[in-house]
Nucleic acid binder design. Structure first.
Lengths: 234, 234
DNA sequence: TCTCCTTTTAACCTTACATTAACAAAAATG
DNA sequence: CATTTTTGTTAATGTAAGGTTAAAAGGAGA
């Protein structure tokens, strides 16, 4: 882990600033891929795995937020830091909405950036212990393939799951027989915790229950005010 | 939702600013304890559990960093946000060194602070994997699972407990065969000690007695004017 | 544009919970 | 022993959370 250089995707349209920043990061032992605009950024993102994305907000053609949204669709976990030109409140708030981990106002101090990078990467490292790599689950007589998004009963015809159905069921499966806190699903899947996302989640719970009805040993229980519990009765 | 308001410790020596900030946070559904200086801040921190600390850096007697260090010694997890008067790089870096989760330069936008608070608290929520606090108790022939909120008699069908039933029984179990002071339950569970909460607690004691009747070796005794005692007769 | 699929929002209903009231019983007080 | 205080218990009430279905809104691709 330590001996592997961390990979950073830097998307910054100002060629001077971008190059300087890239060099600075490389001097500090990061492996940096520099994209000059949003399109290129997304292309490079799809081709490689990164530990962190640093996105300029103000870019022609495709701004940082749009790019962030696209990135989030592919990967819900990768940390994102925004570079905003000024202290623009709207920018900051919008950034958090698309799941920013932090933002920095230009001009910023490079050491501060370094600290932030370190803090964020380390945080993700502790967070992502077992979670992120598990994609196949046995749930009673069901098989869930969370990568291909299908659920199969008794080895029969697989049912396709929508992205949200899939993520939610996966999260429940990761906590099999244990509490899966409401808050966890809302922050991880919906990235927001309010009345409506909460109701939306309840709708999805109902959908999952419908799928799982085929096996009466499998059920999703509610723990009032806390969350849900996927139990497999033996 | 009343009992799961997030609790914030705000340490800020400027009385005007502190009060305004406190009110603002309270308006946004946080429970705020306001300490006027570092000493008081530490005292209050020791007395209660907080979900987040917001510390002013510049304070007489005991500055925010020193306070943060003391807090970290007691609790390695609680998120800390610093308020720094100016963009002082040294401050920011020093802040990260003592384990800050974020910092804000005064003056700051209150909505941004709110977003940061939300983001940080949510992050901590997701990190909580399986804190090995004590959640399982053996009470005579009962098993109490305080995380999943159920009580099982003799390995049979578990009975669901309401949050208050659960907390109260857990507190009694933690003091098994010993006095569990009224006041303790009222301050810990009800967070308020008055005639009505006290009566409410008595109602819950009655409910618990009903559950526990199944095992005649288990009983909840009253110690008049003092509290209750969960005894397990052998 | 018009589909199809997904997600959100709305509506309505049920269940779960906590509080409060009311009255009875026990314990303390003096 | 009369009176006050505390506790035991049950029931009624009000509110919040969750279950479910359907309609509306959004989004991607034809």
């Amino acid at each position: 882990m330590e001996d592997q250089k961390k990979r950073i995707l830097l998307v910054e349209d100002d060629p001077n600033f971008g190059t300087v920043l890239k060099d600075y990061l490389m001097m500090n032992d990061y492996e940096v891929t520099h994209a000059k605009n949003g399109m290129e950024g997304f292309e490079k993102f799809k081709k490689d795995d990164f530990d962190l994305c640093i996105l300029d907000v103000m870019m022609p053609y495709k701004d940082g937020f749009t790019l962030a949204k696209e990135i989030r669709e592919k990967n819900t976990d990768v940390p994102i830091i925004f570079l905003t030109a000024k202290t623009m409140k709207e920018d900051v708030l919008r950034g958090y909405k698309v799941g920013a981990d932090d933002y920095l106002n230009k001009p910023f101090d490079s050491e501060v950036l370094l600290m932030k990078i370190k803090a964020i990467i380390q945080r993700k490292a502790t967070e992502t212990i077992s979670d992120s790599k598990q994609f196949e689950f046995k749930i009673g007589s069901f098989d869930l393939n969370s990568k291909l998004r299908f659920l199969r009963f008794n080895g029969g015809e697989p049912v396709k799951l929508s992205p949200k159905e899939n993520e939610l069921l996966r999260l429940l499966a990761l906590h099999e027989n244990d509490l899966m806190p409401r808050e966890l699903a809302l922050t991880k899947i919906w990235r927001d915790d309010n009345y409506f996302t909460s109701r939306s989640m309840d709708v999805y719970i109902a959908k999952l229950r419908k799928y799982l009805k085929l096996d009466d040993k499998v059920e999703i229980l509610n723990i009032h005010g806390e969350g849900f519990r996927l139990v497999i009765n033996t």
